[in-house]
Computed example of a mutant assay.
Amino acid sequence: MLVTASPLLGLLLDVDGPIASPVTRSIAIDSIATDLVELARLGVPIVFNTGRSDAFITEQVVPPLLAAGLPEGARVHAVCEKGAVWFSITHEGAGEIQVDEDLALPQAYGDEIELLVAERFDDLVFFDHTKRAMVSVEQRMEVDSETYLAQQPVFDELAMQALARHGFGAVREGDERPDVDGDVQVRVDPTIISTDIESVRLGKDLGAERALQLLEQDGAAPQHWRTVGDSRTDYAMATWLHERGHSVTHVDVRPKDGVPETPYPVLTAGDLIHDEAGADFLGRWVAAVRRGSLNAED
């Protein structure tokens, strides 16, 4: 069903943090799924813009949406691995998976990192076999955050060294300049529960571009965007939208790193963080769409 009227609101959502609990790695607050479905029923386009794999979204996000009654004709999509993989979500479940193979790291590099995990970090992380383009390792559930974050830089440095052996120029996210000479082709991006090793062409800005391409196929663009994330890299989706003339407000559900200066508004949820903050804002947006207007705090 092609929607011709421009909806009041559109959502571009990171998954880990705002939607899925970083503790349980699942949707742990029931109102998140029910409010997402209600927003979809009200005509709000929703795109998950995540570094997670399509398998994670299919297993952890799609079932709660279907259980909450995702309606036929809902405009819901998923952009995974920061723009490398994408698919639509309907009332029948996940649609056909699309992959940009040009953005995938070589199998040989992934094999080396998998071996590194097995030999040195198996008690700390697991290798994510569901990724199609990125190479990712993730903190084991039984490992506490302090222990993981203390060892993460050691792994990241070894991952950088492996990239150099495979002939890649690489940069670590957050570094002011590359640690290697030559063209930078790959980024090592640590998060609070994982490390993603990825093409520098991947990012939440590419995810935003993919999101608009998906929405162009099923209806009009929204009047206002809300982008939601839990890290500095998530601001890229709001910046991309703003630079192209869209009305956008970013929601930071983990402003621990500080809120940077931006040309668009940034909202936080007071003392609430992660999925508790995400649930709070989703409830606000349901109320806003029902009344037909957005307030500054929405």
Rank of each mutant, 00 (worst) to 15 (best):
G93H: 14
A94R: 12
G95P: 00
I97P: 03
I97H: 13
Q98R: 01
V99D: 06
V99Q: 15
V99L: 12
E101D: 15
E101W: 13
E101Y: 07
L105I: 07
L105G: 04
P106S: 12
Q107N: 04
Y109N: 03
G110C: 05
D111E: 13
E114R: 13
E114C: 08
E114D: 12
L115C: 05
L116M: 10
L116W: 11
V117D: 06
A118F: 09
A118T: 11
E119R: 12
R120P: 05
R120C: 10
F121K: 00
F121T: 00
D122W: 06
L124E: 00
F126I: 09
F127A: 13
K131Q: 07
K131A: 01
K131R: 10
A133P: 13
M134Q: 01
V135M: 04
V137K: 01
V137C: 05
V137L: 04
E138K: 13
M141P: 12
V143I: 05
V143S: 07
V143M: 08
Y148S: 11
Y148I: 06
Y148R: 07
Y148D: 10
Y148T: 10
L149M: 14
A150H: 15
Q151L: 09
Q152C: 12
Q152K: 14
V154Q: 08
V154Y: 02
V154H: 00
D156C: 11
L158F: 09
M160C: 10
M160Y: 05
M160Q: 08
Q161E: 05
A162G: 10
A162W: 09
A162I: 10
A164G: 01
R165D: 09
H166I: 03
H166Q: 12
A170H: 14
A170K: 09
R172D: 00
R172T: 01
R172N: 06
E173Y: 12
G174K: 07
D175F: 00
P178G: 02
P178L: 01
D179W: 06
V180R: 15
G182T: 08
G182V: 13
G182M: 12
G182C: 07
Q185K: 14
V186N: 09
V186K: 10
V188C: 01
D189E: 14
D189H: 15
P190M: 00
I192H: 12
I192E: 04
I193H: 13
I193K: 06
I193A: 12
S194Q: 04
I197W: 06
I197G: 04
E198I: 05
S199W: 00
S199R: 11
G203C: 08
G203V: 00
K204C: 06
L206K: 03
